[in-house]
Amino acid sequence: MIYGLVLLSCTGHPTEKINGVSFVASREEVAQSHVDPVLDIHANYAAIMPFGFMQDPHTPNLVFDSDRQWFGETRKGAKQYIEMLHKNGVKVMLKPQIWISRGEFTGNMAMQTEADWETLEDSYARFILHYAALAEETHADIYCVGTELATFVKNRPAFWTDLVDRVREVYKGKLTYAANWDEYTNTPFWGELDYIGVNAYFPLCERQNPTKETLRTGWQPWKTKMKELAEQLDRPILFTEFGYRSMDYTGKKPWLVDRNEERVNLQAQADATQVLFDEFWDQEWFAGGFVWKWFIHHDRAGGLADNRFTPQNKPAESVIRQRYAPIKKSSL
């Protein structure tokens, strides 16, 4: 069994942090050898992410659980992943997501007619309820009802409130929604969920080679706003995604997923990860989070020449391992 970071709240009760990884879907089944590196960094949670696909941001039909998808992107694959992780004592957040062709941003998804909006609502509800049933069947520990869908949420708020009610009829566990960093303050249904989910790609500084102090300073206004919202709504903040690319300017636009050729900067990624842990993990109003992202083939993921998000086989992996390591309980 893997144990996460245990803190004592002001009431004296222990609070386990969610020390998670975003476990990327693959073409194949997950084996014990794929889970062992997750255990090695002491992660106590993993996000499992089956996908639905859309042709473009203005076409409402959503295709999911298709035989044309990778194994890990389907219901069968997600179930196998969850069962293997649970077998190893790792808890799971099931987090179905949408991929739009050419990687277009899901937050801009908007329909052109009322009929298309209604078609999208029907299609999306089937997608989410399909995986809510899987979350209940597999006893997933958290279920995420959407990821970075700002325009959809803004234009159809009543749909989302109704969707959460319908999910709760199917799934009896904890619920969240993964709002983008610039979206979460405008998400109207946090009171219906258990966690305020934030994909934490906040801009922190514009330096090519940021220092820890610069990064720490950059966090302060964002941190203050999240603390205020958590206390106002009496819901903890959960970083449904967090992470940095191992490249120069990593704190400038942390959300960038382009294939730019910025110089590899392993120390910047490690420092940014350390500062995020230092700023948030000891806060009572903060639940924890999921590192973006973790590939099942650890031996060939990341590495010292890679400037992408994964911390695997980079100094940032050691930062995560140290933070996620269990605290030894002393006898009183």
Rank of each mutant, 00 (worst) to 15 (best):
M1H: 13
Y3Q: 14
Y3W: 10
V6G: 05
L8P: 00
C10T: 11
C10W: 08
G12F: 11
T15A: 07
E16T: 08
I18M: 07
A25T: 08
R27H: 06
V30W: 06
A31M: 13
S33Q: 14
H34F: 00
A43G: 05
I48G: 04
I48C: 06
I48M: 08
M49E: 07
F51S: 08
H58V: 14
T59Y: 12
P60A: 04
F64P: 00
F64Y: 14
R68Q: 15
W70K: 13
G72M: 04
E73F: 03
T74E: 01
R75F: 11
A78S: 15
K79I: 00
E83T: 05
H86D: 03
K87T: 02
K87E: 10
K91V: 09
I98E: 02
I100R: 07
R102A: 07
E104D: 11
E104P: 03
T106M: 06
N108P: 07
M109E: 09
A110K: 11
A110V: 08
A110F: 00
A115L: 11
D116R: 03
S123V: 02
S123L: 01
R126K: 13
I128F: 04
I128S: 03
E137Y: 01
I142M: 02
Y143W: 05
C144L: 07
V145M: 05
V145C: 14
G146L: 02
T147G: 07
A150M: 10
A150V: 11
T151G: 02
T151F: 08
V153I: 15
V153M: 10
R156Y: 10
A158G: 07
W160V: 09
V164G: 03
V167R: 03
Y171T: 02
D182R: 11
T185L: 13
T185I: 09
T187H: 11
F189I: 13
G191A: 09
G191H: 06
E192C: 02
Y195T: 00
I196A: 03
V198M: 05
N199L: 03
F202P: 00
R207W: 00
T211E: 09
T217Q: 11
Q220H: 08
K223D: 05
T224E: 14
T224C: 04
K225E: 15
K225D: 14
M226L: 14
L229R: 12
Q232I: 03
L233N: 10
R235M: 09
R235K: 15
T240E: 10
F242A: 06
F242G: 04
R245F: 07
D248I: 10
G251A: 15
N260Y: 12
L266F: 11
A268P: 05
T273R: 01
V275P: 02
F277K: 00
D278P: 01
E284Y: 04
E284N: 04
F286H: 04
A287K: 06
A287T: 09
G288Y: 09
V291P: 00
K293Y: 13
K293V: 15
H298N: 04
R300M: 12
R300Q: 12
G303F: 01
A305Q: 14
R308L: 07
T310C: 01
N313L: 14
A316V: 05
E317I: 06
E317F: 08
S318Q: 15
S318Y: 11
I320W: 00
I320F: 01
R321W: 08
Y324D: 07
I327K: 12
K328D: 09
K328F: 12
K329Y: 12
S331Y: 13
L332Q: 12
L332D: 13
